[in-house]
Write a protein that binds this DNA or RNA. Structure first.
Lengths: 350, 350
DNA sequence: TTGTAAGCGTTATCAA
DNA sequence: TTGATAACGCTTACAA
């Protein structure tokens, strides 16, 4: 009957069946052009107050919410930050992620978490995923990727690396003073009169683990106590690892009266291991952990440890990222390591 | 001198300064149209083997990776799934998120985690965020949003809700059998000869907490033990809450020889609380938790608890979501609750 | 200060 | 089977 209608170049908007409100509709209702709306939204250019008001009103009335996907395509920014964590379920990373999430949220960014599983390949894949998702920046928590590779990522994106020291134009890194913390932990045991102080190291592939071991050695040296390789055992920062480490330590017949586990999770595992051998904490063995996770407070006995505010590490990383995105030069301010005295250590009986 | 060049409608692609490889370049190199490449990528329509091969080769050569942002805009699918968690740092949720992440990854989806902070408003905002990011579906872990609101979300997207029972066309929910689990935990204490069994409930705003309390009451009833309100205290599923709950319990002078804390975190807190009052677990008080988080295994003493595979809950939720996305009808299969005997309970001394 | 119009990299609709 | 061509919702020169 009727001719086919011309390909109606642009339906008169106003209302779409799917209920999606677009910027264009806002523009129409406010009687301005889409670009003006965009400008107001992004503060890209000066706009007259009158139009600003009209647009704000229209946004309110329509309940308009900008579509980040479209924004991402058009403007190249997705308002999302990739976060490479190692295991999302770890109590340590959980805290950090919380800090990141909260801080990013305040700026309208959303974190995209991907796990590296302490595995170089997984980490590489994780970063690939993030890049293909066009995140605006990447925060890497520790990890095994080489400095070179990270630097290459930073060629195309701002990168914040936590727990390692490296630098570059779009690359910012900071870390907690693990060495000082470990030194303080060990020093505390020395102060209590212990001289046979065992140490459970983390995976020495990682800087922080190395630093904690260095701190341990520092303190021994300062106290004039020769380091005994028989008192050092390497493990993997997990509870199971701590348990195993204690067994290995006990199998050697190197006697010790104190034990410094280089993170809380291993300390908790170690505690169980000692218990299994009928060694009491702190009566037979004084025990110190590292991190001050919530579990440390509720361990039996409550664990003396080194506080590092993991939450804060996360939020500082996010802050640094936002600063880089703003074109500024970030400067993370992490609190000093602090010994938290609880009930897992005691003076060496004379 | 020369005329302004015509607005060169489409540069001859081939190579862009920013190194981004587009589908169009692949098409050009393979000698086909972009649509054909898209079809091959998505399996949307049959394509001749010859072109398929050519395109695959071109993809390889160029190292092409489809841009999910553009895909999201054009196709309406973002290959990302929103996940509303309560606190990302909680050991419970951490495990679940890991399950979700791993399962989604296998299908090329990425989870977008947002925290509800056990707060209705935050949860609502979280879902808003997810919707505006155009996720393809939403997984809600517990939470306080009304059934009605969740159903409304399901109008526009597939939704999987864990830990509550509600249904609808695009809404699938499943939960662990909390009641049976709590019954088994309490029954275990009854079997050991306890009759004064205290209970720390969770926030009764939440189904799972109610169900666990019901299970506790079931078992008492079955054993002919009258429920004593003086033995029940409500808390919040945190370690601190467990600690507090024990204090409250102890302040009342209702004597008890066993305590069932309705999650592991509260059990750990309770353990410390008992310790503070010089009550030994299990000698003075038998203690049972719920969830079987890693911390239960490493508690002192190791905690008898009800196993619910939190990881599996996460992966089942993800599987269900993928199934819905495929247009199928999901059917989550969760393992039965199981009592894990460890060292925090003992037979009531006669 | 504002509007027009051309993308951003895909997918989807139509014809061919 | 295939290829044009028009979206998708927004940003951003460029012009006015």
């Amino acid at each position: 009957m009727t001719d086919k209608p011309p390909p109606a170049k642009k339906a008169p908007s106003i209302a779409r069946p799917d209920g999606v409100v677009t910027l264009e509709q806002v523009a129409e209702l406010a009687g301005v052009s889409p670009s003006t709306v965009s400008r107001i939204l992004n503060g890209t250019a000066a706009v007259s107050q009158a139009k600003k008001d009209a647009v704000q009103a229209a946004i309110q009335e329509l309940g308009f919410r900008p579509n980040p996907v479209a924004r991402g395509l058009a403007g190249g920014r997705t308002l999302s930050i990739g976060v490479v964590t190692q295991i999302i379920s770890s109590p340590f990373y959980g805290e950090a992620l919380l800090g990141i999430e909260r801080e990013l949220e305040r700026a309208g960014y959303v974190p995209l978490f991907v796990s590296g599983n302490w595995h170089e390949d997984d980490e590489r894949k994780a970063i690939e995923t993030l890049l293909s998702r066009r995140v605006d920046g990447v925060i890497v928590l520790a990890g095994r990727l080489s400095d070179g590779e990270l630097a290459k990522v930073a060629d195309s994106l701002p990168v914040v690396v936590v727990g390692r020291q490296l630098g570059g134009p779009q690359l910012y890194s900071f870390s907690f003073d693990n060495r000082a913390g470990a030194r303080a932990a060990t020093q505390h045991l020395v102060d209590l009169g212990h001289r046979r102080i065992a140490f459970i190291a983390g995976d020495l592939l990682h800087d922080d683990a190395v630093e904690r071991q260095n701190g341990y050695l520092d303190a021994l040296t300062a106290a004039g106590i020769p380091a005994d390789p028989g008192l050092i055992v390497q493990s993997d920062y997990t509870e199971a690892g701590g348990l195993l480490a204690v067994s290995r330590l006990l199998e050697r017949d190197s006697h010790f009266t104190a034990l410094f586990a280089s993170n809380d999770q291993m300390a908790i595992g170690a505690c169980l291991g000692l218990h299994r051998r009928n060694l009491r904490v702190p009566d037979d063995v004084s025990l110190v952990g590292f991190d001050d996770l919530i579990m440390a407070r509720y361990a039996m006995p409550p664990l003396t440890t080194i506080r590092q505010s993991v939450y804060e590490i996360g939020s500082e990383a996010a802050t640094a990222m936002l600063e880089m995105l703003r074109g500024g030069r970030p400067r993370a301010q992490l609190p000093e390591p602090e010994l938290v005295l609880r009930e897992s250590t005691r003076r060496m009986p004379r």
